[in-house]
Amino acid sequence: MALKIGDYKTEVHNDWCPGCGDFGIVNAIQMALSEMQIPRHKAAIFSGIGCSGKTSHFINVYGVHTLHGRVLTFAQGAKLANPEMTIIAAGGDGDGLGIGAGHFVAAGRRNLDLTYIIFNNGVYGLTKGQASPTLRLGEKTKSLPSPNTNYNVNPIGLAIASGFTFVARGYAYDVRHLKDLIIAAVRHKGLAFLDVLQPCPTYNDINTRDWYSGMDRIDEAQKQHSRIYKLEDTGYDPTVHYDSEPELNEKLTQALIKSLEWDTKIPTGVFYKNEIISQYERRIMDKIPNYMENPPSAQVISANGKPTTDISKILDSMSV
C-alpha cells in the first residue's frame, strides 16, 4: 500500500512560532519521503539543537535529535554502520556553521551518501535572537544590542570548498520547489547540502518573508520584484559531466560566483552537482570489498553466545 504524506507525520505538538519557515521545511521533507515511497523504517532524520532540532520529532521515521553542532557526526556514524538507511540530517545555521563548522568541512571531505539541510535564518532563535554565522556584518536584527560585528559565512561557498558533491539552496516558503530539491539531494550519490532560506518571524526582522518576496522592491508599474530566483530558469547547468580538470574548475567557479549573489538577486536551485567524485562508501569498498552487502549493522558476530570471528591467524603470527 502506497505511503501517504500523513504516514510521515507524528502527532507530536509542534511548538514553533506561528509563521515560522520551519513548517515549510518539515512539510517538504514529508512530501519528499512520500513521493519517493521510502519505507518509514528505512529512513532516519537526524537533527541538531535549536528550533530546527525538533524536526525529527515531527516526522514519523526513525528520529535522532542529537547535540548542538554534532548532527553530522551522529548521522555519518549511522550511515557508515548501516548504509541501507536513507539519512537526512537537519540543523540550524548556528548549529551547522558555527559550533558545528568543523564537522561540516570534514563531512564534505568524506562525501558519504546522505543529505544535510540547514535551516538558515540568520539568528539563534531558541536563545532569543543572537547573531548566527550567516547574518551579515553590520546588520542589527531586532534583539541584538548592537550591529553584528562578524562577517558572514557563505554556506554554499563553504560547502563547495569542503567537497560536498551536491550543493543547492531552497526557500522555506516555496515548498514544492524545496520538495523537489530534497528529492534530488536524497537521490544524489554522495553528500548533498541544502541551504534553506527560512525567515524567523520572531527575531529576524531584516530577512523576512516580505523582504524575500521583494515587498520593498516595487517598480513604477506597482510590480513587486522578488529577490529570489531559480537557477534552473536561467539555463544554469550545475552538473560536472565528465572527469576533467577544466570541466570541474568551470563548474566549481560558476557555483562560487553564484553563491556570492545576495541582496537584490538571490539564487535558489542546484548550484553544483558532481557524481564523478567517489562516495565514501566506495572508498571503504576499495579496502573492504563486501562492505555494502555486509556492513557493520548486518554482520553476524556470534553463534549460541560465542564469537564467530576467527582471530587464530593473527594470534599465530604473535606466537613465540
Partner: peptide
C-alpha cells in the same frame, strides 16, 4: 557522535 550513530544501528 559517530560511535553513537553506529551503535543506534
Amino acid at each position: 557522535g559517530m560511535t553513537i550513530g553506529g551503535a543506534l544501528t
